[in-house]
Design a protein around this nucleic acid. Structure first.
Lengths: 331, 331
DNA sequence: GTGAAAGCGCTAACAC
DNA sequence: GTGTTAGCGCTTTCAC
C-alpha cells in the first residue's frame, strides 16, 4: 500500500515556529532564496521535511503573482504523434517544476479559460490552426508552439525539418531503385506543403516525374489516395505518405487490393508513431524526434518565463529515417 | 483576429466600487449566492462584464479552501480508447465549471504532485493499475475511476459491461454461422479476463469449443496471436479480439499471410477506436460508450464534491455492437 | 542574515 | 439584503 501524503494542514507558520525562525526566513529557505545562512537553511528544510510540509500553491500564486502552471493545448490527442508530444511535455514540464494543465480541445474558449486561470505560460501542440490566433495569444503570455516554424510570426516555435524529412524519404526510395514513387500529401497545411514540395524537387533533381495525390493526415485519406494511385495504368512501385496514418491507410488498402508490401509496393511514412514499429506493420518512416523537440520547447518556455526579454527562438530539429520492412530495404 | 482578454488587473474591489456596492455583495452576486436582490445582482454582473473582470482563481482557492481543478490521470494516452476518454473528460469537466489538470504518466509521484496542488478531486482513467493504490488515493480525496468496476473496493467507478460486450460479439459471430471462433485475450487484467470468460461461456452454451490465445492490449500481441492461430491445422474462421488494437494487428497479419478478411476470417474487435471506422479497416466492434461513461463519471464526481456523504456509486454501462465489413455481415 | 509588517484578491462569518 | 471585519498561507519590501 503506497502512502500518499494526507493533505497536511501544516503551514509555513508551523514550520517557522518549529524551527524557531520567522516566517520570512522559512519562506526564503524553502524557495532557496539567497540570504539565508547555510545551517539555518538546512535546519529549516529538515524541520519542514519532518513536519511533512507542502506549500499551498494557491497562496504562493496569490502572493507572488505568478503561478507555475502551464497550459498545454493539444489540437488532436487522437493523433498518436500529438499524443506522444503531449505525454512528453507533461513529463518534462513536471520535471522542470511546473504543472501542466492540459486541454485537448484547442479552441479559443479553452485558451481563454486558461488565461482566466492565470497560467504562467502556454505550450501549443498543433492548435490553434489559425496563425492570427496564435499570434494574438502569444502576445498575452509566454507561448511556445510545437509543430510549425513561426519565425515570421515572431512566435517561439519548435518544429521538425519537414524538407529534410521529405528528402530523406524520397532519396531513400530513389536509392533503392524506385522510379515510380508517388506521394500522398497531408493537405493544405504548411508542413504538409513543404513535404510535398521537397518530394517534388528531389524527384526532379533525379530526373524522374513526381506523382502527387492530395490527401489528409488520416487513415481514410491514405486509403482513398491509394485507390486512385493503383487504378492508374502506370502504378507506382513506391509510396511516400505525408504521415504514418496515411501510410497505414495505404498499407491496409494495398493489402485489400492484393498488392504485397514491400514486394510490389514499398511504403514510407512520416512521424514514427508507435504503431509504425509494430511487428505486422513495420513501417519505414521519418522519425520526428519527440523528446528533443519537447526538451527544446520546455527549455525555450522556461527561459522566457525567467526573462521576458529573452530573444525569440525558433528551433528546427532534424528528423531521421527509420528503416523497417515496409520499404523493402534490408533492415 | 480573435481577441483574447488581456489579463485584466481588475479585481473584485474595482467591480464593487464601480457598481457602488461592497465587496461582499459583489462576491455574492458573481458566485450567485442567494441573498442578493435581483436588480442589484444584475447591475453588478453588468458592471463586471463591462470592466472585463475575471476572478483570480488563486485568491478564490485560498479564501474558500477549495479549488475547482480536477486531476485527470491517464494511464496510456497512446491507447486511442483512453485518449478518447481523456478528451471527453476534459470537455465535460470544463463544461461543468471545473478545470482538468492532466497527467499522462499515471504514477504515484504524479498523483502526489496533484495532491500537493490541492486539487478538488481526481478522475482516474486506467491508472494506477494497482487496486491498493487506487484505494489509498480514493481515501484522500473524491475520486472516480473509469474503466474498471471497483464496487468491492468501495471506490466510485464507471465501467462498461465487459461480459455483455463479449457476449454480443461472440453471439453475433455464432449467429453468422461461425463455429471455429478464436479469442485473443487482452492479458491478465480483470476486464480482459471477464471478456475471455464470457466468450468461453457463450461458446460452451452453444456447444462449440472455445479457442483462446493469450494476448495483450496492443497491435503486436494481435499479430503474434494470429500467427499462432493460423499455424494450427484447425484454423478459425473468425477471431474475436479483446480490443481494437489487437484486431488491427490480426487484420494486418492476416493480410500478410494472404488470408482475406472477412471472406476467410471474420474479425471483431472491442472499443471502437476511430481507426476502426476508417474505410480500409472497417472493423466490426463492441463500442464502449465513451460520452455516456464520461458523463456518468463527471456527474458522480461533482455529486461527491458537493456532498462528501453521498452514497458510493458504481455505474456499469452497456456497450453496443457496431457491425462493419470486417465481420462479413451485411452492414 | 534576520524579523516585522503589509499586503496579494478573495470568501465567510458576523453585524446591522 | 447589505456592509464590516477578519482572515486564507504565502511573498516581499523595509528596517535592523
Amino acid at each position: 500500500m503506497k502512502d500518499f501524503p494526507a493533505r497536511t494542514g501544516i503551514t509555513l507558520e508551523d514550520v517557522a515556529k518549529a524551527a524557531g525562525v520567522s516566517r520570512s526566513q522559512a519562506s526564503r529557505a524553502l524557495r532557496n532564496d539567497p540570504g539565508v545562512k547555510d545551517d539555518t537553511k538546512a535546519h529549516i528544510l529538515a524541520t519542514a521535511a519532518d513536519l511533512n510540509y507542502t506549500p499551498n500553491l494557491a497562496a504562493q500564486t496569490l502572493a507572488s503573482r505568478q503561478s507555475r502552471s502551464i497550459g498545454l493545448v493539444v489540437g488532436d490527442v487522437l493523433n498518436p504523434y500529438e499524443a506522444m508530444l503531449a505525454r512528453e511535455c507533461d513529463r518534462t514540464l513536471r520535471d522542470a517544476g511546473y504543472f501542466a494543465m492540459l486541454a485537448v480541445s484547442g479552441t479559443t474558449s479553452t485558451i481563454r479559460a486558461f488565461i482566466d486561470q492565470r497560467i504562467a505560460g502556454l505550450v501549443l501542440i498543433g492548435a490553434p490552426a489559425e496563425r492570427d490566433e496564435i499570434v494574438a495569444v502569444s502576445k498575452l503570455l509566454p507561448t511556445v508552439y510545437i509543430g510549425r516554424d513561426l519565425k515570421s510570426e515572431k512566435v517561439e516555435s519548435i518544429s521538425s525539418d519537414d524538407a529534410l524529412g521529405a528528402r530523406l524519404a524520397t532519396e531513400f526510395l530513389l536509392k533503392l531503385g524506385h522510379r515510380d514513387i508517388a506521394h500522398i500529401t497531408g493537405g493544405p497545411g504548411a508542413g504538409a506543403q513543404r513535404r510535398a514540395d521537397t518530394y517534388r524537387k528531389v524527384m526532379q533533381e533525379h530526373g524522374v516525374k513526381p506523382n502527387i495525390v492530395e490527401g489528409r493526415y488520416n487513415v481514410d485519406a491514405g486509403s482513398t489516395a491509394t485507390d486512385t494511385l493503383m487504378a492508374r495504368k502506370d502504378r507506382p512501385t513506391a509510396i511516400f505518405a505525408a504521415n504514418d496514418l496515411i501510410a497505414l491507410g495505404a498499407i491496409s488498402r494495398l493489402a485489400w487490393h492484393g498488392f504485397r508490401v514491400p514486394d510490389e509496393v514499398a511504403v514510407v511514412g512520416f512521424d514514427d508513431i508507435p504503431m509504425a514499429a509494430s511487428e505486422p506493420i513495420s513501417l519505414t518512416t521519418v522519425r520526428q524526434k519527440v523528446p528533443e523537440m519537447v526538451a527544446a520547447a520546455v527549455e525555450t518556455l522556461t527561459t522566457r518565463l525567467n526573462d521576458q526579454a529573452a530573444p525569440i527562438r525558433n528551433i528546427v530539429i532534424a528528423p531521421e529515417l527509420i528503416t523497417r520492412r515496409s520499404s523493402g530495404a534490408e533492415v
